[in-house]
Amino acid sequence: MNKNKVMIRVSIVIILLGIIGMMAFVFFKGSNIQQANVQQDIFTIDLTKNLEYKVTGWNGKGYIKVLSNKINPTKNKKIEEFEKTLKYVTKDNYKLKIGDTTTLSVHYDKKVAEKAGITVSNDKKEIHVDDLVGKKVENKWVKTDYGNGKYILEKVQYVDGVEIPEVWRDRPDKIVQYLEFVECEKKHPETYHSACPFMEN
């Protein structure tokens, strides 16, 4: 009788050990699968593929202005953190002239990229400068009739064929803004007051 009890107890212990072993196997197997999934959660991103930019400024003082860079259309949180580290650097920025070729580089935090499982496939874009304000600058003396047969010679400045108001004459930064305003007026003839940037002295 005692022998049978011992055998029963041994059998129960063996069964319990088997159950525990099975549970441990399932737990570690699940952990490995989860870890594998994390390791497979890798993103390859081209930092210049969806880069939108504008070449602007005065000829000889031109620069590249980054407008947007949609690298995270799915709103992934890991990519969002990585996106916050992006910085844009252009070679010879604010010194560009028509005909130049420059390089726009996208700098990023490599540690953040590694932590997020991000591999960068491209972080540079070559840009050719085709057009800037100030291709042609002309100063002309114009005879103005003030009545009573009196004429006065006045200096008038034209930049790229557009007459520049006296208040902004010989001020490249303001001339750039003014020509952008004039161009905007042409595109939005009915609503330019609200659609186009206001010029300040």
Rank of each mutant, 00 (worst) to 15 (best):
26 V>M: 13
26 V>I: 15
27 F>L: 12
27 F>T: 08
27 F>Q: 09
27 F>R: 12
27 F>S: 11
27 F>I: 10
28 F>K: 15
28 F>C: 05
28 F>Q: 14
28 F>A: 06
28 F>T: 09
28 F>L: 14
28 F>P: 04
28 F>G: 06
28 F>D: 11
29 K>M: 10
30 G>T: 09
30 G>Q: 08
30 G>D: 13
30 G>N: 14
30 G>Y: 10
31 S>K: 15
31 S>P: 01
31 S>E: 15
31 S>Q: 15
31 S>V: 12
31 S>M: 13
31 S>T: 10
32 N>I: 13
32 N>E: 15
32 N>M: 14
32 N>A: 14
33 I>M: 11
33 I>P: 02
33 I>V: 14
33 I>R: 13
33 I>C: 05
33 I>D: 11
33 I>A: 11
33 I>Q: 08
33 I>F: 08
34 Q>S: 12
34 Q>R: 13
34 Q>Y: 11
34 Q>L: 13
34 Q>H: 08
34 Q>T: 11
34 Q>K: 13
35 Q>D: 13
35 Q>P: 00
35 Q>K: 14
35 Q>T: 11
35 Q>G: 10
36 A>V: 02
36 A>M: 12
36 A>I: 03
36 A>P: 02
36 A>H: 09
37 N>E: 15
37 N>P: 02
37 N>I: 09
37 N>Y: 07
37 N>V: 07
37 N>R: 13
37 N>Q: 15
38 V>E: 14
38 V>T: 10
38 V>I: 14
38 V>N: 12
38 V>D: 10
39 Q>V: 08
39 Q>R: 13
39 Q>Y: 05
39 Q>M: 10
39 Q>F: 08
40 Q>T: 08
40 Q>W: 01
40 Q>P: 00
40 Q>M: 07
41 D>M: 12
42 I>T: 13
43 F>G: 01
43 F>L: 04
43 F>N: 02
43 F>H: 09
43 F>S: 07
43 F>T: 01
43 F>M: 05
43 F>W: 09
44 T>E: 12
44 T>H: 13
44 T>L: 05
44 T>I: 10
45 I>S: 00
45 I>N: 00
45 I>W: 00
45 I>E: 00
46 D>A: 08
46 D>M: 07
46 D>C: 07
46 D>T: 09
46 D>E: 05
46 D>H: 03
46 D>K: 07
47 L>D: 00
47 L>Q: 04
47 L>N: 02
48 T>F: 03
48 T>A: 01
49 K>F: 06
49 K>D: 12
49 K>M: 07
49 K>S: 09
49 K>E: 15
49 K>W: 03
50 N>M: 09
50 N>D: 11
50 N>K: 09
50 N>L: 09
50 N>I: 07
50 N>H: 11
50 N>V: 05
50 N>F: 07
51 L>D: 01
51 L>G: 05
51 L>Q: 05
51 L>W: 03
52 E>G: 01
52 E>I: 07
52 E>K: 11
53 Y>A: 04
53 Y>L: 03
54 K>I: 06
54 K>C: 07
55 V>T: 04
55 V>N: 04
55 V>S: 00
55 V>D: 02
55 V>K: 04
55 V>G: 01
55 V>A: 08
55 V>Q: 01
56 T>H: 06
56 T>M: 07
56 T>N: 04
56 T>W: 03
57 G>E: 00
57 G>L: 03
57 G>C: 08
57 G>D: 02
57 G>A: 04
57 G>N: 03
